[in-house]
């Protein structure tokens, strides 16, 4: 940990092979992200963790830290781009937070709060993908999916089940269930699966469990996402 670089002027120590995002979170510096999860290999799809390194944009979840590099993150320009990316995610799906069971515990929503998103700005796509309620314990609302692939990675790499996959091209890309019928009920998916716990939004939902936490006590009611992640990581270093 003798090597360092800077983020917005703050000195960040890092170990050889660490990405900018890993070193930043370990040092208690929040960089917004949705598809990155510390337990999985980076994916690089959400682009929320974009930072400016030597004048060029880079995904901090995939770019390795190099001694002496100068990183800009919490700037008007970069946060403006993150806001635009977040707004794109909101209009591409049906993010009706007022009736979503994950509201208050949703990483996409908390990130939008962090970035001060007052409106989705762009025209809405209003996608129409059927809900899959075939499983006895879970239902899937695909219209909230942000294609982070965390469930894909968790099911494949941790659970060894390969229940989920991304399919299609361009805006038609969508989450699918790997069963002949395409139904979750025809897989060996269980509540104990890692894939059942990693969705950062409201796609993979436990049946009969919604709205259990009172408003005011949900994860991001109490503290903004930046404070939670900064506090959580500082204790690890």
């Amino acid at each position: 940990m003798s090597q360092t670089f800077t983020i917005d002027g703050r000195i960040i120590p890092f170990a050889e092979g660490q990405t900018i995002l890993q070193a930043a979170t370990a040092a208690g510096v929040f960089i917004p992200h949705l598809c990155y999860h510390p337990e999985f290999k980076p994916h690089g799809s959400c682009k929320l963790c974009t930072v400016k390194v030597s004048g060029r944009h880079a995904a901090s979840c995939t770019m390795r830290a190099v001694a002496g590099m100068v990183v800009e993150s919490d700037t008007e320009e970069i946060n403006g781009e993150r806001l635009a990316l977040t707004q794109m995610l909101f209009v591409e799906g049906n993010h009706f937070c007022p009736s979503c069971e994950v509201s208050g515990n949703c990483q996409l929503q908390a990130t939008a709060y962090h970035l001060g998103m007052m409106s989705p700005h762009y025209d809405h796509f209003f996608p129409n993908r059927a809900v899959d309620a075939s499983h006895p314990d879970f239902l899937l609302d695909f219209n909230r999916c942000i294609l982070c692939s965390l469930c894909v990675r968790a099911s494949r790499d941790v659970d060894g089940k390969n229940v989920f996959a991304l399919s299609g091209r361009g805006i038609a890309t969508h989450l699918i269930v790997n069963a002949k019928s395409g139904q979750l009920g025809d897989t060996n998916f269980t509540p104990a699966d890692k894939a059942a716990q990693v969705c950062p939004v409201g796609v993979i939902l436990r049946k009969r469990k919604g709205f259990a936490v009172p408003i005011g006590e949900r994860t991001y009611d109490r503290k903004p996402i930046a404070e939670i992640i900064e506090a959580g990581r500082e204790s690890l270093t």
Partner: peptide
């Protein structure tokens, strides 16, 4: 000024869009 989820993104009534 747009006030509330409905004015901003259609809100829950936009669930009829499909």
């Amino acid at each position: 000024i747009a006030i509330g989820a409905c004015a901003i993104n259609g809100g829950l009534p936009a669930q009829r869009n499909h």
